[in-house]
Computed example of a mutant assay.
Amino acid sequence: MIKREKNRLDFTLLNIGYAEHDADWNFKNIKSPFARIHYVCEGEAQIILQNEVIKMQPGYLYLTPAHIHHSYECNGKFSLYYIHIYENPNIMSSIFDHYIFPKVIKANQLLEELIIRLHQINPGSALSIYDPQRYENSTELMRSIALQVASPFAREAESHAIIQLLMSRFLAAASDKITQVEKRLTRVLNYIDEHIHQSISIDQLADLIFLSKDHLIRLFKKHMNDTPVSYMNRKKIEKAQLMMLVDDSSIQELSFRLGFENISYFNRLFKKVTGETPTSYKRSVATLTNEPSTPD
């Protein structure tokens, strides 16, 4: 069997800040192309992650992967550090496609000091708007990207190292997703990763593992809880969202680079997956502004 290539940890900082809430950290139906790490200082709250309620308490780190629907609930005083990070869009596939990460790990003095240090060396990276529906579709996100682009190389290198270390602590307790997938699908998933920028047919995937088209679809749906076409399209749109964070290509060029021959189909699919058109989404993130680098 050809093993699916393991991804590497390669994350860039988008936001880091410290926030104090008083029953006002309540947001629903969040889904982003970036991941979140929360470190709780005081109080309690909870994350509802795909219908699972995760209670948050001081001294613990919480990880929410990219592209996962989740909500926040807080009924009292609550303080935390929040870290938003996104993966290098040039990597083959997301680390979250390879591993099932723990949702929570116990922090220690070193991890706490690293988070504080990350906060100290990235002034101006805090959010001025806490509602995800607003800061993900506003100049808030553009300001964050512009700030990181302008960051001195030494600061960028130190921030990158801290983020990798934090993620490595979650990775140490992660389990391999591939062991939970029917072995013949390993080659299919690997092929999709390697050819995500091309048009891939079901016949190609079926021939790869010497199955009929119908057999492949049944096998894929059984183990991936999705059809091959739906899975590939979702991965392409997720890649498009990530590319829009760091790429100023036109919508048409972006769609062609992801293997879409029909831009109208790409537009319809993008809206189906994300809830908004590519033009609207790109308008929020593609044009960097000259806003002040400090929170309002």
Rank of each mutant, 00 (worst) to 15 (best):
R4F: 02
R4H: 09
L9F: 08
N15K: 08
I16L: 04
E20Y: 08
E20H: 06
H21A: 01
D22K: 14
D24S: 06
W25Q: 03
C41Q: 09
E42T: 08
A45V: 04
I47S: 05
E52M: 07
I54E: 03
P58Q: 08
G59F: 08
L63N: 01
T64A: 11
E73I: 12
E73R: 14
C74T: 11
C74G: 04
F78A: 09
S79M: 10
Y99E: 00
P102V: 06
P102D: 02
V104S: 12
I105Q: 07
K106G: 10
N108D: 15
Q109D: 13
L111D: 10
E113T: 14
L114P: 02
I115Y: 04
I116P: 06
L127V: 05
L127T: 02
I129N: 07
Y130Q: 09
P132S: 04
Y135G: 04
T139D: 10
R143Y: 05
I145K: 10
V149W: 03
P152Q: 07
P152E: 07
A154Y: 15
A154T: 13
A157K: 05
A157E: 13
A161C: 10
A161Y: 15
I163P: 01
L165A: 13
S168M: 10
D176N: 12
K177H: 06
V181A: 00
K183Y: 12
L185T: 03
R187W: 07
I192F: 02
Q198R: 14
D203W: 09
Q204C: 10
I209S: 00
D214E: 14
I217T: 15
H223A: 03
H223K: 00
H223V: 01
S230F: 03
N233W: 09
R234A: 09
K236T: 00
E238Y: 11
K239M: 05
A240H: 01
Q241D: 09
M244L: 12
L245N: 04
R257K: 14
N262E: 10
F270Y: 04
P278T: 01
S284M: 08
A286Y: 06
N290E: 09
S293H: 08
P295S: 08
